[in-house]
C-alpha cells in the first residue's frame, strides 16, 4: 500500500505527494496540493497510502481520522489535533510536532524516530509497537497510555510524564531522562539497559 513513487524532477530524491508527480518543493501549486492531502485526512474515512513529506502543517484538526500505510515523514506539525484518530503502519519519522494533541489516539506500528515533540499530549492513548528511536521530547505527556512494545531507545526526554502507563516490553535503552515521571506505571516490565 505504500507509494514509493519518487518526484519526477531530475535529481530530486524526495517522494511524490499523493495525487502528483512531484514533491511539494517541485509542485506547481504546493499549497493547494498540501491542503488537498490534509482535507482527505479530515474526512474521517479510512485513508491509505498517503504520501506527503517536508510540509508545514499548521493549525489543522485531523481528530477522528483513520490512516493506514502512509508516509508523512519529515513534516512540521504545529497546533494540530490528531485526537481520537486511528493510525496504523504509518511513518512520521524526522518530523517536528509543536503543541499537537494526540489524546485518545490509537497508534499501531507507527514510526516517529528522530522526531522532535514540544508540548504534545498523548494521554489516554493506545500506542502499540511504535518506534520513538532518538526522539527529542520536551514537556509532553503519555499519561494513562498503553505503550506495549514501543521503543524509546536513545531518546532524549525532558519533563515527560508516563503516569499510569502499561510499559510492558517498552524500551528506554540509552535514553536521557530529565524530570521523567513513571508514577503508577509498571516500569519494572520496561527495558532500560542492554543485556
Amino acid at each position: 500500500m505504500f507509494s514509493f513513487k519518487g518526484c519526477t524532477t531530475t535529481g530530486c530524491t524526495r517522494i511524490a505527494v499523493t495525487g502528483s508527480d512531484h514533491c511539494l518543493k517541485h509542485a506547481q501549486s504546493p499549497d493547494e496540493l498540501r491542503d488537498a492531502v490534509i482535507r482527505s485526512l479530515e474526512h474521517h474515512e479510512i485513508v491509505g497510502s498517503v504520501s506527503m513529506t517536508h510540509a508545514l502543517i499548521r493549525d489543522h484538526n485531523m481528530s477522528g481520522s483513520r490512516m493506514y500505510a502512509s508516509n508523512m515523514a519529515s513534516n512540521v506539525y504545529v497546533d494540530c489535533d490528531f485526537s481520537e484518530s486511528f493510525v496504523q503502519l504509518s511513518f512520521f519519522d524526522f518530523s517536528k510536532f509543536i503543541r499537537c494533541r494526540f489524546t485518545d489516539i490509537t497508534l499501531k506500528y507507527c514510526v516517529f524516530a528522530g522526531s522532535e515533540f514540544t508540548s504534545c499530549d498523548f494521554s489516554g492513548s493506545d500506542i502499540l509497537h511504535c518506534n520513538f528511536l532518538g526522539i527529542n521530547a520536551v514537556d509532553c505527556s503519555f499519561d494513562d497510555s498503553d505503550l506495549y512494545f514501543s521503543n524509546f531507545t536513545n531518546a532524549s526526554l525532558s519533563s515527560v510524564t508516563f503516569r499510569d502507563c502499561n510499559l510492558t516490553k517498552s524500551y528506554f535503552v540509552g535514553s536521557e531522562r530529565s524530570e521523567v515521571n513513571f508514577k503508577y506505571s509498571n516500569y519494572e516490565e520496561a527495558v532500560f539497559t542492554r543485556t
Binding site: 503502519l89 506500528y109 531507545t153 536513545n154
Partner: peptide, 18 residues
C-alpha cells in the same frame, strides 16, 4: 519482531550500529 523502522533511523539511533 517489534515496530517498523527506517534505515536512516537505525543508522543514527541503533546502539549496535552506532
Amino acid at each position: 519482531h517489534g515496530p517498523p523502522t527506517t534505515l536512516k533511523a537505525e543508522k543514527l539511533f541503533n546502539p549496535d550500529i552506532f
